[in-house]
Write a protein that binds this DNA or RNA. Sequence first.
DNA 1: AAGTGTGAAGTCTTTCACAGCT
DNA 2: AGCTGTGAAAGACTTCACACTT
Lengths: 215, 215
Amino acid sequence: MDNQKIPKPTIKRLAVYYRCLENILFSGKASVSSKEIADELGIKASQVRKDLSYFGEFGRRGVGYSTQQLLESVSDILGMRKIWNVCIVGMGNLGMALAVYPGLSKSGFFIKALFDNNPNKIGIPIPNDLSIEPISILKSVVKERAINMGVITVPAEAAQETADALVDAGVQGIVNFAPVRLNLPDSVKVEEIDISVSFRSLAFSISLHSGRRRE
Amino acid sequence: MDNQKIPKPTIKRLAVYYRCLENILFSGKASVSSKEIADELGIKASQVRKDLSYFGEFGRRGVGYSTQQLLESVSDILGMRKIWNVCIVGMGNLGMALAVYPGLSKSGFFIKALFDNNPNKIGIPIPNDLSIEPISILKSVVKERAINMGVITVPAEAAQETADALVDAGVQGIVNFAPVRLNLPDSVKVEEIDISVSFRSLAFSISLHSGRRRE
DNA sequence: AAGTGTGAAGTCTTTCACAGCT
DNA sequence: AGCTGTGAAAGACTTCACACTT
């Protein structure tokens, strides 16, 4: 039950279980069953159990899981004990929104630097006593502040060079909001978030189920 | 090749093909092969062909696809001929960023209204000659401006009631940025974007490949 | 020669179903 | 009686491989 390959969908769901367990813990429930988690998320209980089983045995048969302990185990699995220091490159509206998004620091992702190339933006103050710095000093800042994750919110044209700069500076992972596929070494992990793609998939689902032929 | 079930991953990829074809067309290439699209996206050519085959035959054997025509066909499949009028509920930083995000209008999603409950925000002007209106008038505004898609950028606690209001007003789909699963009638489609979940999955991938046991 | 369209094979993921613990 | 953990079955998705067209 150890040395197996973890399905990618399992990873995404674990990140969702974390959120769900936080809520359950907050609501005061000390123990929880796979069925309760599953119902909350609209999936099957066996799915929850199978996902967890890739990493160990966390529950007690006949009883369920300790909410607290399971949350800790999931934190561990997700690598959330580690300190994640994050920088954001590209301080347009989206970059700015992320810089002050409370959900990130609440989840243990600390924004340590903001970069932009526009000279007018350099130095303008941001709510969290951060300031915007020029991309030219990215490498030294990343090293100095032990930044291990980068966020790309620059325009599509600049995304690859930004990614190259982040890799060169030594980040281990990149969250990419720019609508292009990045070319990266295997050692650097990437997570893509393309907002327009989500809108288009939604448009498709609506069209399929209300216009067009029978599914 | 018609009445089949379309795999969900196919839908997401079609939305990406669209983006890719726009670039190829812009670069001046009048025709394109499945391999070229696939290489651009880091997938297999047979995947591209199979995805398209669910909807018809768009290419010419031995030749490839007309970039222009394929882009049009994909637009059609994705329901992008339809006019999508969008409202955003919750004008925090993220809502604000989306309100002025050029990627949406470029893809045919027109922001027609912005709502918030904070009285201090009502009326403040936004770059695109829009203004923020109170949620109390959501239903009438949605009907009046033929809004058919809603975006939820309110805090998690308020997300379900916002969704209920949007459904009651008659939208056909919702893009939900709040970190909760919404309960919706089957007739209303939803697309979830949970930014923290993406960060956590990234943290997992990094931890798996650099710390921990062999994959 | 080059490239599509597609059944069939292969792989990955989910769900079932039940042994085993409390 | 209730709920976990997990092999095995079912189902979903991807890739192969090749007939077919230009």
